[in-house]
Design a protein around this nucleic acid. Structure first.
Lengths: 228, 228
DNA sequence: CTGCATCCGCTTCGATACTG
DNA sequence: CAGTATCGAAGCGGATGCAG
């Protein structure tokens, strides 16, 4: 794994650190919060324990992640991002925004999905331009055995912010993970009945305006690719 | 290579398309312009022909790149980015910005370097906030056998733009590739003698203000990593 | 000469079994 | 729960061959 491209180039350097299989997905999970080994193993759905252990050690050696022992009652530890690891966020976000165009295309029924990836999607697709001053809560239904996952999106002049507070000002959307993902993508109408709605009906209807998920072909002039 | 993570996640999708070895570096070369097979082979410095051929075919099948036959006199063709491939630019740029902190760290003398990566660095590190209204030309010295590579950076209220025009308004910096890279990184003083300077001396001295290369530890609040 | 395809050792990966 | 050990399979780098 200490593979080197041997090139004086930041892309080559980044690929050496994060280019091997599962590495980016480990970061994905840790962007949602600290996780234990077995959490990662389950959420990564298919990684072998040996590879997961090796990746974690590798990333820890490079100080992109760190282990933190949990308070005494728990006999375990969690992995979490270091500042250098968190600094990858802008890149992670743009990769996700690009990859979104391939989400449905090539979708298989057996594809794994974790409910709180909805929050990650909200973080990645939160608009960075001015958005309407709405505050919408999302309650991700997890069935009866687990409590709902909750987060909140707030529009404003500097773009949309996503945090973990409860009690949004305007409305709460509750429903299946994929339905809420559809709301973020603008593909599911919040007042159409696919999600449970409470609070301001009109505000909820504009929930999609807090996000900007641009799918294939939209050719945005939003950023400047090189000219030739 | 048709490896699948089998996860309904844009990061997983992107990794399936671009996660295998050399793929990102192929994109890097094509962001600089169309290239032939042997150009890529040389500039990638270490890729085997079989892997390069397979990657190119794979990326073409997914329509991230395309082949274009050259006008009749040339019996060859070039590879170039498609719109879907060019759409990866914002992600590419952020990866490069993150990877920059590992450029010097771990540098080996044998590291390969292509002179026109300097232009790519200018594209990646062009500031996106307001920059002084300067226009600086860069002439990358290639020795006597090849002509200089030329590009131009222009500051403005919307950030710095980089293009291929000659004849900048304010000053021209000419020198070795790594010295010019140092100017972009703010590590080499243009008026210090490491590069050849013509035009407005004061303007040239502010060349670094057109770029914002933030190295490790600078913990910018510039973008919002997730909260916990 | 360019643009690959083929073959051959080496490395990496995935699945399973096993240990503290 | 948190990994290490093992082994067949797939991916990779390097050399060679070959058609246009």
């Amino acid at each position: 794994m200490p593979f080197r491209y041997a090139q004086f180039c930041p892309i080559a350097r980044a690929s050496e650190l994060l280019g091997s299989r599962w590495s980016l997905l480990i970061l994905r999970e840790l962007f949602l919060g600290p996780q234990r080994f077995s959490d990662l193993r389950r959420r990564l759905a298919g990684v072998s324990t040996s590879v997961l252990a090796e990746r974690l050690r590798y990333l820890e050696d490079r100080s992109l992640i760190a282990t933190r022992p949990l308070p005494p009652p728990a006999a375990s530890a969690v992995y979490e991002l270091t500042p250098d690891g968190r600094a990858f966020w802008p890149a992670f976000r743009e990769i996700a925004r690009w990859g979104a165009r391939y989400m449905v295309q090539g979708l298989e029924d057996s594809d794994h999905f974790e409910p709180d990836w909805v929050r990650l999607a909200a973080l990645c697709f939160a608009a960075s331009h001015e958005t309407p001053a709405l505050q919408i809560g999302f309650r991700i239904a997890q069935g009866s055995r687990h409590p709902d996952l909750v987060f909140r999106a707030t529009g404003g002049p500097a773009g949309t912010r996503v945090d973990l507070e409860e009690h949004p000002n305007d409305a709460i959307l509750r429903g299946e993970p994929v339905a809420l993902l559809g709301v973020i993508a603008g593909a599911v109408d919040p007042v159409g009945g696919a999600v449970e709605l409470s609070g301001d009906r009109a505000a909820a209807g504009r929930a999609a305006s807090l996000f900007d998920l641009e799918l294939a072909g939209s050719e945005s002039p939003d950023s400047s690719p090189p000219v030739h």
